[in-house]
């Protein structure tokens, strides 16, 4: 399961590379993001709007700028083609108590459209926008 998610994030990285508008929106985004699902850590290293690598944890040595922590069921609902209310946006994890967003939130907010659209790439293409 854990490596399945790494493969899925890597696949999202390939989709990201095919989206010129996201490369433009993410041009100033060179950060590592921790996504923790059911306690399993994935470090997503972005460089200028491209996903360079996904590294599985656990790690105490990998610095990250911000983190999204939630559970697999919530992430699965978020990635549904038409997600149900409160699972249609990453902030829904926080609002419903199903997850937390931590770290330098301002960096996330400055790059919010880019990062939300990246996360939505796990959905079917039609619902990604």
């Amino acid at each position: 399961m854990t490596s399945d998610l790494r493969v899925r994030f890597e696949d999202m990285g390939r989709k990201l590379a095919e989206k010129p508008h996201l490369k433009r929106l993410g041009a100033l985004f060179s950060e590592t993001v921790l996504i923790e699902i059911d306690g399993n850590e994935y470090y997503l290293a972005f460089h200028r709007g491209e996903l360079e690598r996904v590294t599985e944890g656990p790690s105490r040595q990998t610095p990250w700028r911000f983190a999204i922590r939630t559970d697999g069921e919530a992430l699965g609902k978020f990635w549904a083609p038409v997600p149900e209310p409160s699972f249609h946006d990453i902030f829904g994890f926080v609002k419903t108590g199903r997850g937390r967003i931590e770290g330098d939130i301002l960096v996330l907010v400055k790059n919010l459209r880019f990062f939300k659209e990246f996360m939505a790439l796990g959905r079917q293409e039609e619902a990604a926008a």
Binding site: V82, P83, P85, H88, D89, I90, F91, G92, V109, K110, L112, R113, K116, A127
Partner: peptide
């Protein structure tokens, strides 16, 4: 741009 990206959380996918 940040405001728009935030309020997109309040827009239904339908």
């Amino acid at each position: 741009e940040m405001g728009a990206a935030l309020v997109s959380a309040n827009i239904a996918p339908q």
